[in-house]
Amino acid sequence: MSTVAAGLDRVTRVPGVRGALIASSADGLVVAEQLMDGVDGRAVAALAGSLIARLARTAHGAGLRPPVFVHLRGDDGSILAAPGADGLVLLAVVGREANVGLARLEMLAAAGRLA
């Protein structure tokens, strides 16, 4: 199993995670994905990628370095994002009762191996 696939596998094993994918933050193209039925990877990549880029600009405006982890919480679940190297971002869609803390740790570890 490749490093990328192993990283996705660890993230999707976390309770409550509906799927995870790696996308290019510049154009939203999906590089790899492990998703449950009903989760549209391309939509996640496009929507979350755009938001992450804007948050990076917001952080820059505040004199901060780019985000290393983002948690967008909705009424019925969350989108988690961990930007990695070479313009790649690891994204996960999780349910409301997901173990976000564990997902975060797995995502940060996996994002650190992206290249």
């Binding site: 989760v39 929507l47 948050l55 370095r65 009424d75 679940g77 989108i79």
Partner: peptide
């Protein structure tokens, strides 16, 4: 950011957005 967050959560079936937590080195 607010508009994009609202659009992302709505289109992905996650309801209305409640918050965005951002970790950045230093803040």
């Amino acid at each position: 950011v607010s508009r994009e967050a609202a659009r992302a959560t709505r289109l992905l079936g996650l309801g209305s957005w409640q918050s965005i937590a951002v970790e950045s080195p230093g803040a």
